[in-house]
Amino acid sequence: MARFIGLKPFPALPVIEFETAGGLMDLHNMADLGDLIISPQRSTLTIRFVHYGKLRGSDAESHAVELEFGEIRDLKMELPADYEPRAAETLEDIAHREVSGQSYFDIDMGDVKCTLAAETLTLRVSDVDCPKDGHPS
Rank of each mutant, 00 (worst) to 15 (best):
G6T: 08
F10N: 01
F10G: 01
P14A: 09
I16V: 06
I16F: 08
E17Q: 06
F18A: 02
F18K: 07
G22C: 14
D26S: 12
M30C: 09
D32R: 05
D32F: 10
I38A: 15
I38V: 05
I38Y: 12
R48H: 12
F49I: 12
H51Y: 11
Y52K: 10
Y52H: 14
G53N: 08
S58A: 05
D59L: 11
D59H: 11
D59M: 05
A60G: 03
A60P: 15
S62Y: 13
H63K: 11
E66S: 13
E66T: 06
L67H: 04
E68T: 08
E71C: 01
D74L: 10
L75Q: 10
E78Q: 07
L79K: 10
A81L: 04
Y83T: 02
R86Q: 14
R86N: 04
A87Q: 15
A88S: 15
A88L: 04
T90D: 08
L91I: 13
E92K: 04
D93T: 14
D93Y: 03
D93W: 06
I94H: 09
A95F: 00
A95V: 03
E98V: 02
E98Y: 14
S103G: 06
Y104G: 10
F105G: 01
D106K: 00
M109N: 02
D111E: 11
V112F: 11
K113N: 06
L116M: 07
A117N: 07
A118Q: 00
L121T: 03
T122L: 15
V125I: 12
S126Y: 02
D129K: 05
D129E: 06
P131V: 06
D133G: 05
D133I: 02
G134H: 14
G134P: 15
G134T: 14
P136T: 01
